[in-house]
Amino acid sequence: MVERKHWFSTLLPHAILILGVLIVAFPVYVAFVGSSWDAGTIANGTMPMTPGPYLVENYSRVILSGNATAREPVGPMLFNSFVMAMIIALGKIAISIISAYAVVYFRFPLRKTAFWLIFITLMLPVEVRIYPTYKIVADLGLLDTYGGLAIPLIASATATLLFRQFFMTIPDELVEASKIDGAGPWKFFKDTVLPLSITTVAALFVIQFIYGWNQYLWPLLITTREDMQTIVIGIKKMLVTQDALTEWQLAMATAVLAMLPPVVVVLVMQKLFVRGLVETEK
């Protein structure tokens, strides 16, 4: 289709998009700039708009020795966050793809009930069920463990519903052709459903990884030991200090570092994502 576009019709959407990008990117830029000055410059009230000379010093302090209040260096906290986010993302995908598969492809008693039970949990996010969940995790002795951090967040109605929605778009004939080709439920899952779901999996992985990475309330509750702390909590602790000046430059540097893993995940997954979109077709 050849369509000559008026310059205005290309310009306007771009102008809006650029404006949007600027609005979103500006705080990130400020955080980056803030991480390149010393505490004094930031504390006197006006934040400079250009990077300063303390970049290397701030980052090496954050990475190597931590700061005055949260004495942990950033490395272990990043690692904890990463492990937690990975367990949550992979766990959510594994559990929800299996339960969606069961709900869509198997006829078993109380199938509808099972589906609605999953659906109802949408109304019960962690915050609502936090006390019983805490009790269970504590009784199981999972406080201050990766298991305790991640497992209660793994069950996911959203992901199950998404997979279910996707599975329902796979034509019935493919199931039937597989049956005739001698593929049982496991082979059909492994050879057809999984490869076809790869884009959905990639999309969910990105969303759930970031969800896990950004967890605040639950890790705050469940971790007491310094070495089990996640980066989000680390940042928070840097900001609230009783006796000392908040070291903004270090908090900013930590925040910038905390942003990197999700960014990497998005970039890596985006490729798979796009490749999946281009290569497969229902």
Binding site: A177, I180, P195
Partner: peptide
């Protein structure tokens, strides 16, 4: 008997080829 064991082959209207 299961479809796979009936020793039949079927051609579907929309072909039902495995897209991937």
């Amino acid at each position: 008997i299961e479809p796979a064991e009936r020793d039949i082959a079927m051609v579907f209207q929309n072909y039902a080829l495995y897209p991937h």
